[in-house]
Design a protein around this nucleic acid. Structure first.
Length: 159
DNA sequence: GCCAACGTTGGC
DNA sequence: GCCAACGTTGGC
């Protein structure tokens, strides 16, 4: 059992969208490090902090759960009707040799008290979290069990 | 294989 | 909207 943090732009696909959909394929990850985490380390049942970037405030808004094994991201093969590249299309990928992978994400809960990045940064108990690193653009990050439980069990329930 | 140029992310 | 930080690309 592993714990993760995934980022999504709030007005692109928020946790409320996930709540509506219940499960969604986490398409469009085009970063090798993030891909490797999904492909090599994520397991069904892993719990995930759902982080909104470009939100007010930015921070963790709830919890999701990994709902599948990794499989090739279908959007890397998608061309439009005229053969033009669609979003996330990768000309170097083939169905025999896919480049990008994804997992399904399931909705778990929305925090009544979202945990802002500011809170995460000032809390000594959360030292070492990847999301605290300046300029960290990694959209899928491993999170320690201790940090996960502290954010979900303590910070999200305070106030 | 180096590294400058470029495009993108994301906090502010 | 700005811009620093970062990952990727491509010329050499």
């Amino acid at each position: 059992m592993n714990y993760w943090l995934i980022k999504s732009e709030a007005d692109c696909y928020s946790i409320e969208d996930l709540k509506k959909d219940k499960v969604t394929a986490w398409t469009g990850v085009r970063n090798y490090q993030a891909r490797n985490f999904m492909r090599d380390s994520m397991q069904s049942g892993d719990l995930v902090l759902y982080y909104h970037s470009s939100a007010e405030p930015t921070g963790v808004y709830g919890v999701a759960q990994v709902a599948s094994k990794a499989y090739p991201d279908p959007t890397q093969f998608k061309r439009g009707k005229g053969g033009e590249a669609m979003e996330y299309f990768d000309p170097k990928a083939t169905t025999d040799k896919p480049i990008w992978y994804l997992v399904d994400m399931a909705y778990v809960e929305t925090f009544t008290h979202p945990v802002s990045l500011t809170e995460i940064k000032i809390d000594p108990k959360l030292e070492g979290m990847v999301v605290r690193q300046k300029g960290s653009r990694l959209s899928i990050q491993p999170v320690s069990e201790k940090h996960f439980k502290y954010i979900r069990g303590v910070l999200a329930r305070s106030k």
